[in-house]
């Protein structure tokens, strides 16, 4: 290594290689961007309500307790597939009502159980948030999570 790898050669390998790998990475990201728009998500079906629901999700920092598609905090359940877990595939109206009722009945106050705050969401916010969960549940995630427990 002493003779072959001089400092200037090491520097040139660093700059040249890093630039090449960055270019490959950006190229693949561009492809993935198109793949997300055209294949893996229902970009056409991303309604105003879904976008507002994502904003409700962010406004109350849900991700700092829950995970969504496995990312977030690990303090509360995964919500990327909460729509399936609540039976939304078979009974969308029932799942919607159950999810809304769940959020409205927080905190449970049960001793020794983790408490979710009540965010005092109005009916539109609740519906938007459920629309967002429904939309997310249809993202093609290469088969993740392994089961309904999320």
């Amino acid at each position: 290594m002493h003779d072959f790898m001089t400092k200037s050669r090491a520097r040139n390998i660093f700059y040249g290689g890093s630039f090449a790998f960055l270019a490959i990475f950006v190229g693949l990201t561009v492809h993935s961007h198109l793949y997300i728009l055209e294949t893996s998500t229902d970009h056409e079906g991303l309604t105003e309500a879904v976008a507002r629901g994502k904003h409700v999700w962010e406004k109350h920092a849900c991700i700092n307790c829950h995970t969504i598609l496995g990312e977030g905090a690990y303090f509360a359940p995964e919500l990327g597939n909460v729509w399936q877990r609540y039976g939304g595939l078979d009974d969308p109206e029932g799942a919607r009502d159950a999810l809304k009722l769940w959020m409205q009945s927080q905190p449970t106050g049960i001793e020794g159980r983790r408490q979710m705050p009540n965010f005092n969401l109005n009916d539109q916010e609740l519906n938007d948030l459920v629309d967002f969960f429904e939309w997310v549940s249809r993202i093609k995630t290469q088969g993740w999570p392994p089961n309904e427990a999320g």
Binding site: F14, G17, F21, Y35, S40, L69, I139, T141, P145
Partner: peptide, 22 residues
């Protein structure tokens, strides 16, 4: 730093398994 960027840039891929990416 060469090994860091050669591995780390495309290593971002380990976050792109299950979020709707190819």
């Amino acid at each position: 730093v060469a090994t860091a960027l050669f591995s780390g840039l495309l290593g971002t891929g380990h976050h792109y398994y299950w979020i709707g990416t190819p």
